[in-house]
């Protein structure tokens, strides 16, 4: 009975997210849409809290209070002009949270499918986290806003990708060997940095939109890893709407997505400074 109520609450919160996103698409109703979506989030959190599997609320309460306070203060204090990088930073934390959920879901007797979803949530979450930090650094100009390139960058990137695939295969063969999980975590964090440094500061809003889409996909993968419907539904909603929004933003800049992502690589190493 308890489980049924929770699942029905998840259905309601998914509906609220969908209506919220719809209303966010028009200037007159956008603020109401955001509030609706926030109510949806509240419903989902309350539903998660009444789950009978939860025996101790201590760390949940501490986590929500600490995180909520930091988020509220940061959102209040941020300058209007610095909002895009603040969104990037929040997004990065969401990605890291998905990484941690994926990590925590790993147990010795995990099936191959579960291991694949864990690797995906760790990989996408990790890339989102460090990628968003770099995007934040570039926009707030604590890092140089230009594209950073060096000789052999593509080779390094290819090696990282191969390393991630290799570690993922090893982990799925032996889920008890956490060394491979740590390898995936480390390489994913590194890959996020490598993916964003060759992109120039002016293209950052597009990258943030793409990373936002990734954090949705990371939540979706984490949902598969821990068998949670609302994570899958809301995560894939954000993932899909984020990708299409990225596409629209590229179009309004008269560029293609590939053009933005690989602009650094295309211009050649000689241009880099």
């Amino acid at each position: 009975m308890n489980g049924l109520i929770i699942q029905l609450a998840y259905v309601a919160s998914a509906a609220l997210f969908i209506m919220g996103l719809k209303l966010l698409g028009s200037a007159a109703t956008a603020r109401k849409g955001n509030t609706l979506s926030a109510v949806g989030m509240l419903v989902a959190i309350v539903a998660a809290l009444i789950d009978q599997g939860i025996v101790s609320y201590q760390w949940i309460i501490i986590g929500v209070l600490v995180g909520g306070l930091i988020g509220a203060v940061a959102a209040r204090l941020v300058q209007m002009t610095s909002m895009p990088e603040m969104v990037a930073l929040f997004n990065g934390f969401g990605g890291l949270a998905s990484l941690l959920v994926g990590w925590a879901a790993l147990s010795g007797d995990a099936s191959t499918f579960t291991v694949i979803t864990i690797v995906l949530s760790v990989l996408i979450g990790g890339v989102t986290f460090t990628g968003s930090l770099i995007a934040y650094g570039k926009l707030s100009e604590t890092l140089g806003s230009g594209a950073i390139m060096f000789r052999g960058q593509q080779v390094v990137n290819s090696l990282i990708v191969l390393g991630i695939i290799g570690a993922a295969v090893m982990l799925s063969m032996d889920p008890t060997n956490t060394t491979w999980l740590y390898a995936v975590i480390g390489l994913s964090l590194l890959f996020g940095i490598m993916a964003v440094i060759p992109i120039g500061g002016a293209d950052m809003p597009v990258v943030i939109s793409l990373l936002n889409s990734y954090s949705g996909l990371a939540a979706c993968a984490a949902g598969f890893a821990i068998n949670n419907n609302i994570l899958i539904v809301a995560g894939s909603l954000v993932g899909a709407s984020g990708i299409i929004l990225t596409q629209i933003m590229c179009k309004s800049m008269n560029r293609s997505l590939g053009n933005v992502l690989f602009s650094g690589f295309g211009s050649g190493v000689t241009e880099a400074t």
Binding site: F17, G20, L21, L24, G25, G33, N34, S37, A38, G40, M41, A44, I45, A47, A48, L49, D51, G53, I54, I60, G63, V64, M83, V87, F90, N91, G94, A97, S98, L100, V101, I208, S209, N212, S215, G216, A218, A219, A222, G223, I226, N228, I230, L231, A234, G235, L237, V238, S241, G242, L245
Partner: peptide, 18 residues
């Protein structure tokens, strides 16, 4: 819209709570 969708991606909090 990007920012609003970003807030929804924090749904991972539900998995973390469990």
């Amino acid at each position: 819209l990007m920012s609003g969708a970003n807030a929804i991606s924090g749904i991972t909090v539900v998995g973390a709570i469990a």
